[in-house]
Computed example of a mutant assay.
Amino acid sequence: MANIRPTLQIEIDPRRPVPEICAVISATLPFHPPGQEEAILNGVKEAIEKQLGAIKKGAENHAKPVHGPSGSGADQ
């Protein structure tokens, strides 16, 4: 029996990330049964929130003072 799988070949312009990512999402949704759009978009939302948390955590770590080798808080 034939193995048929729809695929998308996508090229995006990284200089325009928001509209390009939105276009990818819009192009992907029709390949799924009706009613799954909300679950897919919620999954994307969770992934975005996770990435934002990692970015925020990284920014907080960069704001912490650098400690010397003795751990006294004094910079070298």
Score class of each variant (00 low, 15 high):
Leu52Thr: 13
Ile55Pro: 11
Ile40Pro: 00
Leu41Val: 07
His67Gly: 06
Asp75Ala: 08
Pro69Trp: 04
Glu20Lys: 08
Ile55Trp: 05
Pro65Ile: 04
Leu52Phe: 05
Gly53Leu: 10
Ser26Glu: 09
Leu52Ala: 14
Ala54Gln: 12
Glu20Cys: 07
Ala2Lys: 07
Gly43Tyr: 07
Val18Ser: 10
Val66Lys: 14
Gly68Thr: 06
Glu37Arg: 03
Gln36Trp: 00
Ile21Leu: 08
Gln36Met: 06
Ile40Ala: 05
Ile25Leu: 05
Asp75Thr: 04
Ser26Asn: 12
Gly53Ala: 13
Ala59Gln: 05
Ala74Gln: 13
Phe31Met: 13
Asn61Val: 11
His62Val: 13
Pro69Gln: 00
His32Arg: 03
Cys22Leu: 13
His32Val: 07
Leu29Phe: 03
Ala74Glu: 07
Glu60Tyr: 10
Glu60Gln: 13
Lys45Arg: 15
Thr7His: 10
Glu37Trp: 12
Gly68Asp: 05
Glu60Asp: 15
Glu38Pro: 09
Pro6Asp: 01
Gly71Thr: 08
Ile4Asn: 00
Glu60Ala: 15
Pro69Phe: 05
Ser70Val: 00
Glu11Trp: 12
Glu11Phe: 08
Ile10Glu: 09
Phe31Ala: 12
Val66Asn: 12
Ile48Asp: 06
Pro6Arg: 02
Pro69Ala: 06
Ile12Gln: 04
Thr7Asp: 01
Cys22Gln: 14
